[in-house]
Nucleic acid binder design. Sequence first.
DNA 1: GTCTATAAGAAGATAGAC
DNA 2: GTCTATCTTCTTATAGAC
Lengths: 220, 220
Amino acid sequence: MDTKKRILDEALTLFSEKGYANVFVAEIAERVGIKAPSLYKHYKNKQAIFDAIIEEMNRRFLGEAGALQINGADAAMDADIYKKLSEEQLITLGNNLFLYFLHDDYTRRFRKMLTLEQFHDKKLADAYMKQYVDDPLSYQGMLLGLMVSSGVLQTDNVEIMTLHFYAPIYMLLTICDRDPDREAEALKTLEAHIRQFNRLYARNEEIIQNNKKKSRRKIK
Amino acid sequence: MDTKKRILDEALTLFSEKGYANVFVAEIAERVGIKAPSLYKHYKNKQAIFDAIIEEMNRRFLGEAGALQINGADAAMDADIYKKLSEEQLITLGNNLFLYFLHDDYTRRFRKMLTLEQFHDKKLADAYMKQYVDDPLSYQGMLLGLMVSSGVLQTDNVEIMTLHFYAPIYMLLTICDRDPDREAEALKTLEAHIRQFNRLYARNEEIIQNNKKKSRRKIK
DNA sequence: GTCTATAAGAAGATAGAC
DNA sequence: GTCTATCTTCTTATAGAC
């Protein structure tokens, strides 16, 4: 990796751990293996490093087209999977989702940096919300909506159902960001959450049986 | 209010808005209406101000004996209320709870400060988690458990039920902390959430019907 | 306890050699 | 592009008068 990129990488790591104000230019330089003045040949100043990180984030996040996706890119495929999801599959997907968000190096460092810098700059707060609240809710809502249409789940308010699915995941994520030691506990909770979620929203047996008899009829 | 207390108050406000490192001693002093050097007659240094804030927090939080309480102090009374809660009452309580956390000046500033400084000091991350995750879950779990015992709600996993109740509230709180303009939207979502929560966990059809009838009477 | 003046030091940024 | 040396600015903190 070239120096310019390595600076961004090390800076992101440091910013996510200590916050912008607590990271010194000399510190970033040291990690890259150069002296502070050399760094100014690559970026105009400290703020420019931060701005470049944000710019890269916007590029990546746009590329990902909404976070918390199942397959990362192929929404149509996700939709097909979701339409006929068993409980075990739902759990597996929830797990992968959670673990991706938690462990993916880039995502994790970003989330932590945005958490620390969110009140400095409204744009960062907005980016955080889009990435970790609104986009996930919107995407997951679309997928869960499909499960409702196809009759796997039942509700008259998909939006709230999605909140019930995602809010616990979000909360577990913020727990593990603060204390990585609680990951095992969080994974157990996550599984129990999804099982219970599935039980609460699954169409009950009677209706499913009925539905089989009147198989032509589609219930919204 | 005496100068010593006013320093803490203004410092907390500034720390919660900009983070410790971005607040200058002169800034705190100015808000108090004195010059920076005078401030050192009250506190040894900047860190001592921060420490005093944390100390006060621990005192207050201990005094409150677990956050997200209904009446703030009287758990027994809360328990009695919960045992026979109608849907409308559950909503009112959820609202009060949410609004208290969001608007109480002290609580709000603390939460924001802890959010900004959490990775700076493990103790602060722990304080945040205790106050906004573990204590609320534990306290709400106790109360919802009573509702299960008394037959208002039904579940075989109170812990997850509590997560389903509280995680959306927590998420809405983090949304409004970042963007106060979304409060109205959050309140609507909160109500819909609690209604759906109640429907999902209410004991059975008969009780749901009963609750719906009671709901129409709009009991505060 | 508050002030003015100022010391002490940290951190960002530049100059200029190589 | 990287270095050493240095400048500049900002911020904490102290000294000492009132």
